[in-house]
């Protein structure tokens, strides 16, 4: 077991975690932040994407111990941003949401693309290739992403 302290969705949070516990499990099972979704568990699908110190990461492949001192934002934290407000309107208009399982992770990736921290945007298709969606066929995702990042 180890003690750690990090800022999760703007709140200073103290946690006691096992050395082998994954961030995804800690978020979902300890903190009840179930907007972060579990799917492939091999860092391919992007459903478990959260933002750690400004960068999108797959929480299924990150040991919880590594967020000691870090700032973590999950979908539950993104809800309070102006980006989210805009995204809601754009996603609804483009009918981008279908089953919704990939949506929180996708929104967090998109958010990270808009704040400039990742440097200049590459092709949006490349940027979003780490967020799988099996429902939409991606067209409406790309259309919404185009609007949100321009």
């Amino acid at each position: 077991m180890m003690q750690l302290e990090s800022t999760i969705n703007g709140r200073c949070t103290q946690l006691e975690v096992n050395d082998n516990e994954l961030l995804l499990d800690v978020l979902r099972d300890h903190l009840g932040l179930t907007g972060t979704k579990r799917s492939c568990e091999v860092e391919v699908c992007g459903a478990c994407t959260v933002i750690v110190d400004g960068l999108p990461v797959s929480s299924c492949m990150l040991l919880a111990s590594e967020i000691d001192g870090a700032e973590v934002v999950t979908i539950e934290g993104l809800r309070d941003t102006t980006f989210y407000e805009r995204a809601q309107e754009v996603f609804t208009r483009h009918a981008t949401v279908q089953c919704g399982f990939c949506t929180p992770g996708l929104l967090l990736t998109l958010w990270s693309l808009t704040d400039g921290r990742l440097g200049p945007l590459r092709d949006l298709r490349e940027e979003l290739s780490g967020n799988l969606c099996r429902c939409t066929g991606y067209q409406s995702i790309l259309a919404a992403a185009e609007e949100l990042t321009s």
Partner: peptide, 21 residues
Amino acid sequence: RNVGRLDAAVKMSGRAEFVGD
């Protein structure tokens, strides 16, 4: 009409409940 989905907001917010949640 292309009305917006009833479940768009709850799914975007991460509040939509799936069995695993």
